[in-house]
């Protein structure tokens, strides 16, 4: 048995260049360089979408609550985050179609393309990047959802909702095809237009008399089903005075399209005046 003596010396040199050098060599290829340029250009062209989308959402006066602000922030961030990846795919798509080699004709082309079966670095990078992105989306979503749940006062059941002067309770009933709002704190006055005082927490107890409706306060960012045989809870604090839209967002029969009404977010004084006019004795 012989023992080979391994000489104590630095590792023998390989002809593998350092990774930065490989990257630079790769970048010198026209294809890689062009696609990166196209990605940046397309990315910047798509960037205005982030503002345009929010602008479209704000057309009728949103955001009128913290919830809606958070929703718009989410839409904005998601747009910005998804632009690089969309731009990259579009760049590859367009460049491989109109920027690189192209043949037409009836016969299959003889000119064969490089047989790239896989690319370990590319695959690892892509997996890592897409997982990171998905992770970011999930974390962002979970945090925002927790905040929105907090801002909409979760699902506090009717007997635990504070009945004090610092909040308003509204019992919402959907029926084909009208919304009814009852204010139990104000001697049970009933209205078909949703009056809310500004900057005060509102608790909604929502149910339906017949079929499923969806209670959507558009500019306030509140949306929840009104189910027959069940009460769903949510809430909001409107932080902007104005007239906003309330629509039904679940097909509920013939006149579903017309099942909409106004939300009037008014000052506390105006709200008190309104409740007195409606016959409620107690002011809050």
């Amino acid at each position: 048995m012989t023992i080979t003596q391994i000489p104590d010396q630095p590792e023998s040199p390989t002809n593998r260049p350092p990774s930065m050098h490989r990257f630079r060599t790769w970048l010198r290829r026209p294809y890689a360089r062009h696609i990166l340029i196209w990605t940046v250009v397309i990315g910047f062209l798509l960037l205005p979408l982030a503002w345009l989308m929010v602008a479209a959402m704000n057309q009728t006066g949103a955001p009128a609550s913290k919830i809606m602000e958070e929703i718009e922030q989410t839409v904005f961030v998601f747009t910005v985050v998804s632009i690089p990846i969309t731009a990259f795919v579009f760049a590859v798509l367009l460049y491989s179609l109109i920027g690189w080699k192209q043949v037409s004709g009836d016969e299959p082309p003889m000119q064969e393309s490089p047989a790239i079966r896989t690319n370990r670095i590319g695959v690892i990078l892509w997996t890592f990047a897409s997982s990171l992105l998905a992770f970011f989306l999930v974390v962002w979503g979970l945090i925002e959802l927790a905040q929105i749940t907090a801002n909409s006062y979760g699902t506090i059941s009717a007997d635990q909702q504070p009945g004090d002067n610092n909040s308003v309770i509204v019992n919402v009933t959907g029926q084909q095809w009208v919304w009814t709002f009852a204010y139990p704190q104000h001697d049970g006055i009933v209205a078909n237009v949703l009056y809310l005082p500004v900057d005060k927490p509102v608790y909604f107890n929502i149910t339906s008399k017949d079929v499923i409706h969806n209670f959507w306060l558009v500019e306030l960012g509140v949306k929840i089903d009104a189910n027959p045989g069940a009460i769903t809870q949510t809430g909001v604090t409107p932080n902007k005075e104005g007239v906003f839209n309330l629509r039904c967002a679940e097909l509920c029969g013939m006149h579903h399209a017309y099942m909409e009404t106004e939300i009037r977010v008014v000052s506390q004084e105006a709200f008190n005046t309104w409740t007195r006019e409606m016959g409620g004795m107690r002011t809050s």
Binding site: V89, V92, W100, V103, S104, T118
Partner: peptide
């Protein structure tokens, strides 16, 4: 998506 754009990468497009 990666598989799709990887296959498009540096291919000669027979535009049928």
């Amino acid at each position: 998506v990666l598989v799709v754009i990887g296959t498009l990468w540096r291919g000669t497009a027979w535009t049928r």
